[in-house]
């Protein structure tokens, strides 16, 4: 029984991390029509920068998350402005560039932080497991789930209730119309790209105590995020949310029960959705 409880919680926490990663990917894709393959690299870079901040300046994970997120947002903003912007309209070129930059970031991380995994310590207050009805719950994983849900609610309000959100929605629905009614599309793009990058970076740091920072973290996470987005539907936050937890469960239980074939099991939900609903569970348009 303890096994199932723990695996469920592991699934939920992985799902939460995937949501932080894929929500940004999905937002960027929905608004800008960019499949940002640097997203996995942002996640990994976030983890590395987070642990560096904790070691050298502020030994608090939450503060490091905010600071690290800000750093990644700046990096994302620069990347969007100076590399992706000149390629506007050439979506294939943009994807290839994001691919190139992800290779560069991955190699830079290897140079700076070396090849050994760097663990990120769990905050003191969350180290003792919670005990409920004879079951032990790792407190940090619960916290991750709560953070993901909190982020989802925050994003929902941002999109549905704020001016910025209204502009994003208008842009997703009809870019030309949005331009026509005077929405500052250029600034909006940069803002959303920064936001998406920051979410990925923060995901990396928050995921640190569970996954730690290691070379290849980007390549491990990117396919999961892609599958989440394909499953949930591009540009849909609800889709990213539901997809994240589905993949969280499938992957975690796959690894636990059929360690050899966990990756094949990832195929299944994706293939089923692609076969019957190419646009994804909650997508409005097919990618």
């Amino acid at each position: 029984m303890q096994f199932w409880v723990i695996q469920t919680l592991n699934s939920l926490s992985l799902g939460g991390l995937l949501f932080l990663l894929s929500s940004g990917f999905s937002l960027i894709f929905g608004l800008m029509r960019i499949a940002n393959l640097t997203h996995g690299a942002f996640f990994m870079l976030g983890a590395y920068i987070g642990i560096t901040i904790m070691k050298n300046w502020v030994p608090n994970l939450w503060l490091a998350t905010l600071l690290g997120g800000a750093v990644i947002a700046v990096i994302g903003g620069i990347f969007e402005r100076f590399v992706l912007r000149p390629l506007a309209g050439n979506s294939q070129g943009q994807v290839l560039v994001t691919l190139g930059v992800s290779l560069i970031i991955a190699d830079l991380c290897l140079i700076v932080w070396g090849g050994d995994p760097i663990p990120i310590p769990t905050p003191e207050s969350l180290r003792t497991p919670l005990r409920v009805m004879n079951f032990m719950f790792p407190a940090y994983r619960l916290a991750v789930v709560l953070i993901a849900i909190g982020t989802a609610i925050g994003l929902y309000f941002l999109i549905e209730r704020t001016r910025l959100g209204a502009m994003i929605r208008a842009g997703v629905d009809d870019m030309q119309m949005a331009r026509g009614v005077g929405i500052p599309v250029s600034r909006l793009f940069t803002t959303v790209f920064c936001l998406g990058a920051a979410l990925a970076g923060m995901g990396g740091i928050i995921g640190g105590p569970i996954l730690s920072a290691y070379p290849g973290l980007d390549a491990d996470m990117l396919p999961l995020a892609l599958i989440v987005v394909i499953l949930g539907g591009v540009g849909s936050l609800v889709g990213a949310f539901v997809g994240s937890f589905i993949i969280g469960f499938v992957y975690t239980f796959g690894i636990a029960l059929l360690p050899d074939l966990a990756y094949v099991i990832l195929f299944l939900p994706m293939i089923i959705v692609i076969a019957f609903r190419p646009r994804g569970l909650f997508g409005k348009v097919s990618a």
Partner: peptide, 28 residues
């Protein structure tokens, strides 16, 4: 599978499929 989409969707699907195989090569 991949040709259920074109353009960016095709790129993402081919990438996802190949990454799954890559992961499989590591873990199987």
């Amino acid at each position: 599978i991949a040709l259920r989409a074109t353009g960016l969707g095709f790129m993402m699907l081919t990438l996802a499929l190949s990454q799954v195989l890559w992961g499989l090569a590591y873990r199987w």
